[in-house]
Design a protein around this nucleic acid. Structure first.
Lengths: 133, 133
DNA sequence: CTTGACATTCCACCTGGCTGGAAGGTTTAT
DNA sequence: ATAAACCTTCCAGCCAGGTGGAATGTCAAG
């Protein structure tokens, strides 16, 4: 299979696939005599794994880490699970930050709306955005 | 006031202040005869506004938009409020995405833990990450 | 007189995940 | 024969919000 068909089967672009090879997420492809990359079916599985892992919030660096362990024959499921756990922690932290930011904006917005619009034309002077807490 | 003192008073770096001037978030500073930038107290207010607006999730582009309207004498508080509203919407969207991602990871993780660890050494083959829904 | 702490400009680099295009070689279809 | 549709490499750029460093200028104190 050539890179175009692999791209079709995975929904990725050829650019992205070459990029993944460049950063080591997928191994260097076999080449046809003319220099074209030649893939077998396992490439599809590997790229699907990459997509799933990205959808789960893992970075390409982390994915590369998992896959290189696997390529060395290491048992990696435990590693994947601990990465997922730390991502859940990270997501919780992001959720907290976002909720905090939302509360702050709502507070600012509510306070600003209670001011007389005629007296509030300059957001610096009337402190539309100043945080009180 | 020179740029170093302005940096001290606002908690920004001199680099960041020059950068803000470069992208138009703050106007070109007056210059002393030796070429040094010379600021008055309003620069502190303006930079505090920038910090508050960033803390509220506005981008420097949006902040520049607000401040250039203000510099043209436009009434901008309403504009600021509508930007804040759209940011709340955006934060809600991000919250939804994060919650969705977390649910997906927890589901994957739970399912993977129920498998026999001895039979699960390759996350591609045993589909540690495959999404079932 | 020189050292150190400021200031200036400009250009490059960083993170992450790619995408675009140039310049060329190969294969396939008409 | 030739055009379209592939493929190759490499270099550049994008988003945001800056940071780092080089080369140079200015100014006050010891």
């Amino acid at each position: 299979m050539r890179i175009g068909e692999l791209a079709n089967q995975t929904g990725l672009t050829t650019k992205a696939i070459r990029y993944y090879e460049g950063i080591g997420v997928i191994p260097n492809a076999e080449r046809e005599p003319n220099g074209y990359r030649d893939y077998d079916g396992s490439a599809v599985d590997r790229l699907e794994f990459v997509k799933d892992a990205q959808a789960a919030g893992l970075s390409l660096g982390e994915i590369e880490q998992i896959l290189s362990l696997k390529d060395q024959g290491e048992s990696t499921c435990g590693h994947v699970l601990s990465l997922l756990d730390s991502h859940v922690t990270d997501i919780d932290r992001q959720l907290g930050e976002l909720r905090h930011m939302k509360a702050r904006i709502v507070q600012i917005s509510t306070r600003a709306r209670q001011m007389d619009p005629a007296s509030c034309t300059d957001p610096i002077r009337c402190q539309t955005l100043a945080i009180t807490s």
